[in-house]
Design a protein around this nucleic acid. Structure first.
Length: 1032
RNA sequence: GGGCGAUUAGCUCAGUUGGUUAGAGCGUCUGGUUUACACCCAGAAGGUCGGCGGUUCGAACCCGUCAUCGCCCACCA
């Protein structure tokens, strides 16, 4: 399957390699996993992507990191299992399908009914699950595809049932009338976490409520303020503070304190607030202060007085409640318990009636009297008009308000009184907090711990019901009228059925752990199943154990659970991660994973997160098509630092003329773009119509991907060089090459061998350490620098000289191939395809050799390199730096003096004997790498007549320039150098004359002294050189 | 209102426990048909590390403060 080595293309072809090796991996089942008692397990569960749509680069990042970790662990000898899957994403998916239904066919879900809608969503799910899985495969993810799960499949459904049943039995599930966040568009309750606040322009209406039979000295009206006048139809009280004077004085006192302590910029606002509060103490024209009025009202409230609710013409009580803040608004507040969370609390406290004025679709119901049937918006307008007509509208203010919106439908949320199922969070949440506090679950980076524990500490009960059709139906049946005895009889001997009496609604709740109950399960009665489905997170919370077979004690659950690490993004740390911990603990008694790594977010060039609705989400497949999967992965991993989000600037490339078309907020959602240069239209990922899809797609390009692609190509070419230079493969067993094997035959002249092996060992250590601690960017940097700068730019260049030498070839080849071999394995987790492609070529070559079997069948199952600690040699690395420094100095002289590349130059180096011994054997390298011939080393030298000097620490280089020299320019250059050195020398001298000498650690002082001495030496050399040049 | 993060070269970002002259890639400039690679090679220019104070012999790093930007959470009529 691999062509002969002499046919290695000059450019790496990612597409061919991806196809070939993805197929190869799959056919050989390298990523399939079974419990194996001979190995330690390492399991990762994928954060299941929503089936709402295709994956974007955010997912690509998430899955690249997981794959890197899992591939490394696999190579380290763990029995690794990466479980793939997708999430049904209840609200989100139903919403997109419903929207599609309406756009395409002008139908609502009610038109087609529950079964038909669910069927359509299943079709949608099939389509996108297929797409998502193929995207993951395209990226090279090494999941065990045979274990692909879906949060709505049978396995997950069983776990959901058991979880629910267990909670129910332990009385942790309850149902009650609660004020919920109602999405009038999707007609379902949503949790607080699915609500986002948006700033919108609104109004503040001041409305008069007439006092019923006012007595003398009592006000005729109570004025209240509201941003939602239509809710007044549901008012059941007007509240005033029971002791407005004390409350107001306290507020004033607090404000004064805060004002005194506040920073300047906040003082203005605080002062304003204070003034306003203090004003309420002062008398107005009629001799009454606001406070006086509130005191009157407060007294009236204790006398059970009422006010007349306008429009509804219904008397409502004036009540005293601390919720009414005397410093806010008018000091009086209307109470609408059924449509405001705070009022709801007041209503419960004060035992007020709760009047629901809304239908589930957001129109007003019969309780709204003549306004029934209007939408909220219509009702609001009408009510304001009516109030105005009746002279009850005092004033209207314009105001910016924070309005709750549904995350899914982007429509305003209405607080709505509805029956709702909840899970009591008390102990469950505490267990999840403890798991993180005591280190059982480690969150990385640590700063995310706070958000996690803070959220859980609130212990807010979890509303789990959704009025949707797409999801796990709540396994509860209602039974009215039966006696407990009858139930016990109906379900005699069944442990999988549990029931509870709900006195609020006089109904039995029957929960079934396994099967759906039929209507006649209780003889003589008809039982009805709950219509609602469960919150999506209820099933995703079980993901780590449900995918392994829980509640059954499967070998998988026993072996792989708890999983190794969960890699995800920060948005779902609470919604998902926290709930997995609590559910895992509750169901299995164990945490679901030992570590949680929170990775950065991918942002576009405007700093916005990627999302489908914005249109800035890029399909990883389009990046892969242009740059290759390895480049995509490498680029993303390279950017995964601990602190920063990843900003990616991406633009379109015209597929015809190659022009770069900037991606803008405007064109990023267009299905096609007309190239401004050549005028030809190309399609984007949003192309839908047939005619648009016919066009050629303009790929997305980005600098970071180019860099990564270039790196892959560099690696490819390094391998190409190695392969082409191996006409005679070495006999040594390359994979088991150890320093002790090298030390005897290797002489000082092969400094570069020891150097590269030392560097290789260090890099192996660093990369392993970084990957094991999720420092992906650091790992990539080590690999990039080592591969490009050290291996390619130095080692390969140097070794060329020896490869040409019959007697030295063998050893050079051995080291060369060994380093490449290790490097490939270190790189494999991030760039699996190119490394496999090269690996297989090396393998082929090796199999022709007697030693063979040095190469695993696939690099994906080859052993992870272990750093050869013995090879690490700090002294060699230091010496090599001297060589590099000298080489660079000579090259710089050449470049800056415009010496023609083919012209050979000569140079001499003044240095001590040790340095001379070190560098003399490197002479061939100066010749091959800088076309410079050494004429002398040591303390005493014959210095050429016309020369350029570069003073370095501990040595001076004299490059013979003969007729190439420009003496005045040479002198100017040296003088500039001297001035620079003078600066450093001065600052160092001062430093060494200061307290520094006494207070700094002796080693640091000594270092500084040496540094100064070196600088002085360099300066002297430069001065001498100038003197000599001036005599020429 | 509370919390978290960021601010370093034209751009995107590194910078380990404070310790010589702050690094990389891209871009820019100079030179290159060096038999692995122009998706390349050699070299250069470019930064008062957001501002101000403090601690220290010594601060990009620690402390305080201000400024700007981003994200998350929060029931205010």
């Amino acid at each position: 399957m691999t062509e002969p080595t002499n046919e290695i293309p000059k450019q790496y072809n990612p597409t061919a390699a991806q196809e070939k090796w993805a197929k190869f991996w799959e056919e050989h089942n390298f990523f399939r996993s079974q419990p194996n008692s001979n190995k330690k397990p390492f399991c990762v569960v994928i954060p299941p992507p929503n089936v709402t749509g295709a994956l974007h680069l955010g997912h690509a990042l998430n899955n690249t990191l997981q794959d890197m970790t899992i591939r490394m662990k696999r190579m380290q000898g763990f029995e690794t299992l990466w479980i793939p899957g997708v999430d049904h994403a209840g609200i989100a998916t139903q919403a997109v399908v419903e929207r599609r239904l309406f756009l395409d066919e002008k139908l609502t879900r009610h038109d087609i009914g529950r079964d038909a809608l669910v069927q359509r969503i299943w079709n949608w799910k099939e389509q996108f699950q297929t797409r998502i899985i193929s995207q993951l495969k395209g990226m090279g993810c090494s999941c065990d595809w045979n274990r692909t799960r879906f949060t709505l499949d049978e396995m997950c459904a069983k776990a959901v049932r058991y979880f629910f049943f267990k909670l129910f039995e332990q009385k942790l599930i309850y149902r009650g009338k609660r004020l919920v966040n109602w999405d009038t568009h999707l007609q379902t309750a949503v949790s607080d976490d699915e609500v986002c606040h948006e700033t919108v322009a609104g109004n503040f209406w001041y409305i008069k409520y007439p006092v019923v039979q006012p007595k003398p000295n009592e006000p005729e009206y109570v004025v209240v303020a509201t941003t939602r006048p239509e809710t007044m139809l549901g008012d059941t009280a007007v509240a005033v503070h029971p002791d407005p004077e004390t409350a107001l004085n306290k507020v004033i006192g607090d404000l004064k304190k805060r004002l005194a302590a506040a920073p300047e910029k906040e003082k203005i606002d605080l002062q304003k607030e204070l003034d306003e509060a203090e004003n309420r103490l002062r008398s107005s024209d009629n001799g009454n202060s606001v406070l006086d009025q509130l005191k009157t009202l407060s007294r009236m409230a204790t006398q059970n007085r009422t006010v007349m609710l306008p429009l509804a013409n219904r008397p409502i009580p004036l009540i005293a409640d601390v919720w009414a803040k005397p410093e806010k608004g008018t000091g009086c507040v209307k109470i609408t318990p059924a449509h405001d969370p705070n009022d709801y609390e007041v209503g419960k406290r004060q035992e007020l009636p709760m009047i629901n004025i809304l239908n589930k679709n957001g129109t007003l119901n019969e309780n709204a009297g003549k306004y029934a049937g209007l939408t909220i918006k219509q009702a609001r307008e009408q009510i304001v008009t009516d109030l105005e007509e009746q002279g009850l509208l005092v004033s209207v203010e314009e105001r910016i308000i924070e309005l709750a919106h549904s995350d899914r439908s982007k429509t305003p949320i209405e607080p709505f009184l509805n029956d709702q199922w909840f899970v009591k969070m008390d102990d469950l949440a505490q267990n999840a907090i403890d798991a993180v506090h005591n280190g059982e679950v480690k969150i990385i980076p640590e700063r995310y711990k706070k958000g996690y524990t803070d959220w859980l500490s609130e212990k807010r009960d979890w509303p789990i019901g959704r009025q949707l059709w797409w999801g796990h139906r709540i396994p509860i049946w209602y039974c009215y009228g039966a006696t407990e005895k009858e139930l016990a009889q109906a379900f005699a001997g069944r442990k999988d059925i549990s029931w509870q009496w709900n006195s609020e609604n006089n109904v039995w709740w029957i929960c079934s752990q396994t099967e759906d109950l039929s209507e006649d399960a209780v003889s003589g009665y008809t039982i009805i199943q709950e219509e609602d489905v469960l919150d999506t997170w209820f099933s995703s919370a079980l993901w780590p154990h449900s995918t392994l077979g829980w509640p059954d004690q499967t070998p998988e659950l026993d072996y792989y659970y708890p999983t190794g690490v969960l890699i995800t993004n920060r948005d779902i740390l609470t919604l998902w991660v926290a709930r997995m911990v609590l559910a895992g603990k509750f169901n299995t008694g164990k945490i679901p994973f030992h570590e949680v790594f929170i990775h950065p977010k991918i942002l576009d060039k405007y700093g916005e997160g990627m999302s489908k609705s914005k249109g800035n989400g890029i399909d990883p497949i389009s990046v892969i098509a242009k740059f290759g999967a390895d480049a995509l992965r490498f680029a993303l991993a390279f950017l995964t630092t601990e602190s920063q989000d990843i900003r990616l600037t991406l633009d379109f490339e015209c597929p015809y003329c190659g022009a770069v078309v900037e991606q803008t907020k405007k064109n990023r959602t267009e299905p096609k773009i007309i190239c401004p240069k050549c005028g030809v239209p190309f399609r984007t990922q949003w192309a839908e119509t047939e005619s648009d899809q016919m066009l050629t797609e303009g790929p997305m390009i980005g600098e970071r991907f180019e860099v990564a692609r270039n790196f892959c190509n560099k690696l490819w070419n390094a391998a190409r060089f190695v392969l082409l230079s191996l006409q005679e493969p070495p006999q040594t067993q390359t994979q088991h090459l150890k320093t002790d094997q090298l030390s005897s035959p290797f002489e000082v002249s092969f400094l570069e061998d020891r150097w590269i092996l030392s560097r290789l060992a260090t890099v192996t250590k660093n990369v392993t350490e970084c990957l094991e601690t999720y420092r992906y960017a650091d790992a990539m940097r080590f690999l990039y620098d080592f591969a490009w700068d050290e291996f390619c730019s130095f080692y390969v260049e140097m070794v060329k000289f020896r490869l040409a030498n019959e007697t030295q070839r063998q050893q050079a080849q051995t080291v060369l191939i060994h380093v490449l071999n290790v490097l490939l394995r270190l790189l494999h987790p991030v760039v699996p395809f190119v490394t496999e492609e090269i690996w297989q070529r090396l393998r082929l070559l090796d199999s022709g050799n007697n030693s063979r079997n040095n190469y695993a069948e696939s690099i994906s199952i080859a052993a992870w390199p272990v750093a050869d600690e013995l090879a690490i040699d700090v002294e060699i690395e230091r010496q090599f730096k001297v060589f590099q420094e000298l080489l660079r100095a000579i090259r710089e002289v050449r470049a800056s003096r415009n010496v023609p590349p083919k012209t050979e130059i000569t140079f001499a180096v003044r240095c001590d004997a040790a340095t001379a011994t070190l560098l003399k054997p490197m002479e061939p390298y100066f010749l091959s790498m800088a076309k410079a011939k050494a004429t002398g080393w040591g303390e005493t030298l014959t210095i050429p007549v016309l020369f350029s000097t570069v003073p370095l620490a501990g040595m001076d280089v004299y490059v013979d320039l003969s007729d190439l020299i420009d003496v005045p320019a040479e002198i100017a250059k040296l003088e500039k150098e001297i001035a620079k050195l003078d600066g450093f020398i001065k600052s160092k001298t001062l430093k060494l004359e200061s307290d520094f000498v006494q207070k700094a650690p002796p080693t640091v002082v000594e270092k500084e002294r040496q540094s100064l001495a070196g600088l002085l030496e360099q300066r002297q050399s430069a001065i001498d050189a100038v003197k000599k040049l001036k005599t020429v």
